[in-house]
Design a protein around this nucleic acid. Structure first.
Lengths: 225, 225
DNA sequence: TATCTATTCAACTAATTAGTTGAATAGTAG
DNA sequence: CTACTATTCAACTAATTAGTTGAATAGATA
């Protein structure tokens, strides 16, 4: 095999992964699955696609070996087959944030919103967290909380905010997080809580950022010994 | 704007980046530009595409804001507009390596080749490098070496290996590197050197992996103080 | 000035893709 | 066994895409 053929074939291999993220709906599916395994039904509701189209995109992900499934009762539950998909999504989002004006604009307009809707970064939260003057709430669907959540967080899904609101103290700051920097749930929760008189703040991070930080800490610890 | 419209638009934004890596030739262009800025002419030769098609793909990269260009004489020189493209390519390659069998197979067959063609990782090299019992050579085109190279490396482009071979000592180990884990140049150099009686070894890393390591070291240093 | 070289552009073709529709399958519950 | 639910599959359409060809442009050189 000549070098050109080798290059063509190896880049064709890379492209099998690249093609996956060339469709908005497939990126959204991977984003959702990165929070927790989900049935086709759930993915259909979350993405607002037809069942057939959702199934077809999931099979494209299967072919690229990025997801796998198991059957339970008459449901099919899909999950990520490789955790590094999270890094791929992160790389795409970071570049889009820096290079695509629309992305920045949309985020500012719908997630960050206004200055009186306070946002804290992961680092800021980590510095404050030991003071015990706040309560951290996870406003994602409960199955995502059950799959993984930030240590010490309370599960209060956004649809159940009103029912569980009695769990929240008025005298402490309420810090809400959801799927990450492009998820509207935490913004919505903070806005609704503030209207009700709570001190509420949005944490701009999800479980992946938190886990990443946690590993970095552990690595440092190991290296320092 | 309702939440669904917001999601559709934000994922459409991400997809502008994702679409770029859905074509093997565009991944190859980004890969080449990640080594050094290049003229259209050079990219045409490296990718074996027609000039018109190369130009068209470069304009697709321009539209996604991933490259920029400057004109010099009657040449147009393209370069990456965002260094994080390297992270994106790395994420894709890592996943492809783990999930796509063809990629692993091709790499073993054409890069790693046989057991008597010794390969060392970046970590192994970093541990050995202070012993002064070897010489490190960069076998990429000279313009890429000039743009950035591993500290202490000698530039011996693969096409000029025979001419410059007198620079290499027979009594020291020769360690060759090129663009990274999927580049054939270093393998070719090591094979040719071994035939001529040199002790030659392939370093499985490029400037990006080296730079990444260098930053991590610096960060640790800063954090430890 | 005319000529050469590097690059871009416009028009076209063949192939691929996302999405729809409706039928088929497979497992569950009555 | 029947009815129901979740999922997949096949056939089709409209839109997009990669690549080609040949002409156009723009800067450099003679």
């Amino acid at each position: 095999m000549d070098p050109r053929t080798f290059k063509d074939q190896i880049y064709a291999g890379f492209t099998q992964i690249g093609k996956v993220v060339s469709s908005p709906k497939r990126i959204e599916l991977l984003d959702l699955l990165s929070q927790s395994p989900k049935t086709v039904e759930t993915l259909v509701k979350e993405t607002a696609m037809s069942t057939a189209n959702t199934s077809k995109h999931l099979h494209a992900l299967l072919e690229a070996q990025l997801v796998r499934y198991e059957k339970e009762k008459n449901y099919v539950i899909y999950q990520l087959a490789n955790e590094k998909v999270v890094d791929l999504l992160f790389a795409i989002k970071t570049i889009a944030e820096e290079q695509i004006e629309d992305v920045t604009r949309l985020r500012d307009e719908f997630i960050v919103r206004s200055d009186d809707l306070e946002t804290i970064t992961l680092e800021e939260w980590l510095n404050r967290r030991d003071t015990n003057e706040h309560v951290l709430i996870d406003v994602r669907p409960q199955e995502e909380y059950v799959n993984e959540h930030i240590d010490g967080a309370l599960s209060i899904p956004i649809e159940a905010l009103n029912e569980h609101i009695s769990l929240l103290p008025m005298d402490k700051e309420v810090i809400a997080y959801c799927r990450g920097a492009y998820c509207v749930y935490a913004t919505e929760a903070v806005e609704r809580l503030k209207v009700l008189g709570y001190q509420a703040v949005r944490l701009e991070a999800g479980v992946h950022e938190w886990r990443e930080h946690y590993h970095k800490q552990t690595d440092d610890f190991v290296r320092k010994r």
